[in-house]
Amino acid sequence: MSVDYVVRLEQGRSSQPSTQLLGAVARALCLSDDERERDVDRAGVAAVRHPRS
């Protein structure tokens, strides 16, 4: 994923991102479960829960 794509996501100028992409961004940013759920909700995609190891 490019920096440009992340900027477009932040600005709401991107097409609907996949749950896998959102999960990868959340992991890279070390988001809490609440923060992850908020971002998935904002993106308008169905949340996919993955247990943390």
Rank of each mutant, 00 (worst) to 15 (best):
A28S: 12
V45Y: 07
V3F: 03
S53D: 12
L21N: 03
V6I: 15
V25D: 02
Y5P: 01
L31T: 07
Y5M: 11
V25F: 02
D39P: 07
R38F: 11
R27L: 10
A24C: 04
M1D: 13
S14D: 11
S53T: 03
R8K: 14
S32G: 03
S2G: 08
D41Y: 04
R49W: 04
S18L: 08
R36T: 14
V40R: 00
T19Y: 01
R13A: 11
G12S: 05
G12L: 00
H50W: 01
R42V: 06
V48M: 08
S14C: 00
R13D: 14
A24N: 15
S2N: 05
D39H: 00
R8I: 07
A47T: 06
M1G: 14
L22M: 14
A46F: 08
Q16W: 02
A24F: 02
R38A: 13
V25L: 12
S2Q: 06
Y5F: 11
Q16M: 10
G23T: 01
S18R: 13
S18T: 15
S53P: 15
L22N: 10
R8W: 06
S14W: 02
G44C: 04
R49D: 12
A24V: 07
G44I: 08
S18C: 11
A46H: 13
R42D: 10
D39W: 09
A47G: 07
D33W: 00
D34K: 10
A47F: 05
V40S: 05
V45G: 14
R8S: 08
G44M: 10
A43D: 05
Y5E: 15
V40F: 14
Q16L: 15
Q16T: 14
A24G: 15
R8Q: 15
G12Y: 02
Y5L: 15
S53V: 04
D34P: 06
V48S: 12
D4W: 03
L29S: 04
A26I: 03
M1Q: 13
A47L: 12
A24P: 10
H50C: 01
V25P: 07
D41G: 11
C30T: 03
D39L: 15
L21K: 11
R38T: 13
Y5R: 15
S18Q: 12
H50I: 13
R52Y: 02
V40M: 13
M1I: 02
C30F: 05
T19D: 12
R49E: 09
A47Q: 08
D4N: 07
G44E: 09
E37W: 04
S2M: 06
S14V: 05
S53R: 13
D33H: 06
D34L: 04
L29A: 11
A26Y: 00
A46C: 06
D34W: 06
Q16H: 03
V40G: 04
A28Q: 15
E37H: 05
D4P: 09
S15L: 12
S15C: 00
E35K: 08
M1L: 02
A26W: 01
R42E: 09
E10W: 05
Q11Y: 07
A24Y: 09
